[in-house]
């Protein structure tokens, strides 16, 4: 069963990407990915660039609005996501717990839609 592990970051965590904490920050994430690979659960994922690099399109009936910046306009923002393939939700939560802890980082776990034929 596939799950998405969504990692929400504080502004300070995003700032850490470009100061002296950078190597430790990315190093922890790569070791985490290595662990998932070793266990054979890693499917894919992506690290996202800083929220201020985002552009948002709002689809309305017949109109669309393009805006600078991410959605939603909250303090914490999505920083990246992993997709894993595990037996059940409990196993997915166990992997989410192993995600490197940073101050204020919140992890959301959500099942993926099964592929439809």
């Amino acid at each position: 069963m596939k799950f998405a592990i969504l990692s929400y970051e504080t502004p300070d965590n995003f700032a850490a990407r470009s100061d002296q904490r950078r190597d430790a920050l990315f190093g922890a994430v790569f070791r985490y990915i290595d662990e998932m690979r070793r266990a054979g659960v890693f499917v894919g994922g992506a690290g996202l660039d800083l929220p201020q690099t985002a552009t948002t399109i709002r689809l309305e009936e017949g109109v669309r609005r393009v805006q600078d910046g991410p959605y939603p306009d909250t303090k914490e923002q999505l920083g990246g996501l992993f997709v894993i393939d595990v037996a059940d939700e409990a196993a997915a939560i166990a992997w989410a717990r192993r995600c490197p802890r940073e101050p204020g980082r919140v992890i959301e776990v959500r099942p993926l839609l099964p592929p439809r034929t």
Partner: peptide
């Protein structure tokens, strides 16, 4: 993003991915 077939009322955020090379270099340094 404009072609995403989500219903009206949806919002599509477009964000560049982290460059794998840059992130890996940082990780390798650690």
């Amino acid at each position: 993003a404009a072609r995403v077939p989500a219903a009206p009322g949806s919002v599509i955020e477009v964000r560049p991915n982290l460059k794998p090379a840059a992130a890996e270099a940082a990780a390798a340094g650690a």
